[in-house]
Design a protein around this nucleic acid. Sequence first.
DNA 1: TCCGAAGTTTGTCAAAGGGCAACGTTCATG
DNA 2: CATGAACGTTGCCCTTTGACAAACTTCGGA
Lengths: 231, 231
Amino acid sequence: MAKLDESLLTGLPPFSQLERPQIRAILDEAISRRYDEGKAIFREGFDADHFFLLLDGFVRVSRATETGEQVIVLHISPGQLFGIARALQRETYPATAIAAAESIVLSWPMRLWGPFIDSYPSFAAESYKTVGLRLGEIQASLTEMATKAVEQRVAATVLRMANQSGRKTEDGIEIAFPITRENIADMTGTTLHTVSRLLSGWQKQGIVKSTRKHVVVTDPHRLVVLSQSNS
Amino acid sequence: MAKLDESLLTGLPPFSQLERPQIRAILDEAISRRYDEGKAIFREGFDADHFFLLLDGFVRVSRATETGEQVIVLHISPGQLFGIARALQRETYPATAIAAAESIVLSWPMRLWGPFIDSYPSFAAESYKTVGLRLGEIQASLTEMATKAVEQRVAATVLRMANQSGRKTEDGIEIAFPITRENIADMTGTTLHTVSRLLSGWQKQGIVKSTRKHVVVTDPHRLVVLSQSNS
DNA sequence: TCCGAAGTTTGTCAAAGGGCAACGTTCATG
DNA sequence: CATGAACGTTGCCCTTTGACAAACTTCGGA
């Protein structure tokens, strides 16, 4: 395999303050791999034998219930660490990670976790910070699910995805990865039918514009209003 | 203030493998305090200036939405660390902690966090493990909220509380801290009315027995069935 | 270029559960 | 022991939204 270029990691928070040779050493231990859309990177309950960094693409993290339904917990954007179960003293992955779009992923064997944490303070700090942010996000989802009606939840979810991983287009902010009505339903605890009706309605009002697997938010402000309205 | 007895900490996971003098040193830095039922220990968004250990009682951790409703995220049992925002590189508490029953709490100033983590490996390991377990719990709540109907959610929640912090009585397992219909509603994203109706119904069927602020599960098995039934 | 799979839309219907209202019960406190 | 506040119960109505069904569209591959 060709050597990975050091520029891949410089600038990323976990590896910022590091010197060239350190980054070189880290990269030499890494495996780079491409995942097609829909391919699993790791699965819930399996032995947590690697940790990962997303270089390009998007990853969907989901959990399954005993009865088989799946719930999408969050999305990972490029530059983020994931599969860092070990940070929480876990032996197995607590969720399933699937490439939401074609993705490039670096991975390291979990035995390097301890050494990385010990040797690179910025890596440790960033890992725990990431966990903290995700915990916050999940708590936010939880409170949303507990207090908001379906329309508000879907509005808030679409908005969050547009903010976290949207790209500007002429029409507005486009969610940067393929996403189906069913995916949105799995994030908001509703059905694809209801999501479809909502998006259709919003499209008629000029708030969003959507095609197969793509959503563009054309009027973010009105979506914000929808996500908060209490009536 | 009288010196705290070392037996308070021996046997608790974060301080297991430690020697007497170490425990003595840790205790000498701690402040012990009693909180009456309903009193806040810390509040969401405030400066995270202390971390805590619950010695006795129960603590309710909740988050507020922008619109003022509150959602109860989890309960803390004796022996557990809490308010450990710092483990996640946070400057402020991400939630509010309120004594659910009269409680005895040890606290340390946050400036000791780094030294504790560095000096006591079991403390570090236990802290991160705790975070991991809570993340798991919250994810479980999230998937539950997303996929289960109200009756199943309430059944699962009552069951979880009975399992985590129940004590055996002649009649069955009693939830060990005072809990109102409204509290349960705030945990399950429903209203106190619906919870009241459900508990009344279950009581008629001999599944639970409840009085003001107290719930006893008399037939856990049937409650398990309810929490899973898909019809 | 055709076909099947995956994704989307829309209609109808029924049930769950929230909103509102009124009343009952328990408890702490002066 | 009287009073009010906190907690709990129950009835009724109506909206939201899930369930079911059917058809349509888009896309990739044989």
